[in-house]
Amino acid sequence: MSHRTPADWVPQLFSGFLPAPTVDRVVQDFASHRDVPLAQLGVDSMAVMGLVLNLETVFALRIDYAAFDIETLRTMGTIEDYLTSVGCLTGGGSAA
């Protein structure tokens, strides 16, 4: 599956971690939410490992946990940057 815009990957990645209305707001205005810490959006520290596992599932990644920097999950933007760097986002990344 090709993940091109936040509308393609945010709902899949954050299902069960953020309330649906929050996910909808992020998708509708990704630029305004790009640098907001996930904790401010409602992702607690206990959910972070679940997000890592979800990254593996949604994007068919194999993450090296010894080398993985948890700061990758600090904001929507850092997640988008990581996904772009490992080739999971194609065709332009963020919606304008």
Rank of each mutant, 00 (worst) to 15 (best):
R34N: 11
G42N: 04
T75E: 15
N54K: 14
I79D: 06
V48T: 13
V48C: 10
P21R: 14
L73R: 01
L41Q: 08
T22S: 10
F68V: 07
I79M: 12
A47V: 00
L51A: 09
R25P: 10
L51M: 06
G77L: 14
A31C: 04
T72V: 14
A39R: 08
L61A: 03
F59Q: 02
T72Q: 03
A20D: 15
T57R: 12
R62E: 10
R25S: 13
I63L: 08
V43E: 07
T57S: 10
Y65V: 00
D24L: 06
E71P: 07
F30C: 05
Q28H: 08
M76R: 08
S32Y: 10
D44Q: 12
G50S: 05
M49K: 06
I63P: 05
A67Q: 09
T72W: 01
E56R: 01
V36R: 14
A20I: 15
I70R: 01
Q40K: 08
V58F: 05
T72Y: 01
L61I: 01
G77Y: 13
E56H: 07
F17I: 00
L61F: 04
V48K: 07
Q28L: 07
R25I: 10
V27F: 01
A60Y: 00
D35V: 02
G77C: 14
T57L: 07
I70V: 09
V43N: 08
V43S: 13
L73N: 01
L51Q: 09
P21E: 13
N54S: 12
D29H: 14
V52P: 07
E71H: 11
D35M: 07
L41H: 02
A67C: 06
V26G: 07
L18W: 13
F30I: 08
V26W: 00
V36H: 11
D35Q: 12
G42M: 09
F17C: 09
A20R: 15
L53T: 06
Q40E: 12
L53G: 07
P19N: 15
A47L: 02
D69K: 04
V23N: 11
L73G: 02
L53E: 03
L18S: 14
G50E: 06
A20C: 12
D69A: 05
S45W: 07
R34I: 08
L55I: 03
V58S: 05
A66I: 02
R74D: 15
P19V: 14
I63C: 04
P21I: 12
V58E: 05
F30V: 10
G42H: 00
R34G: 09
A60E: 06
A47S: 06
D35G: 01
N54T: 10
A31N: 05
L18H: 15
L51V: 08
L53I: 09
T22P: 11
D35H: 08
A39S: 12
H33F: 10
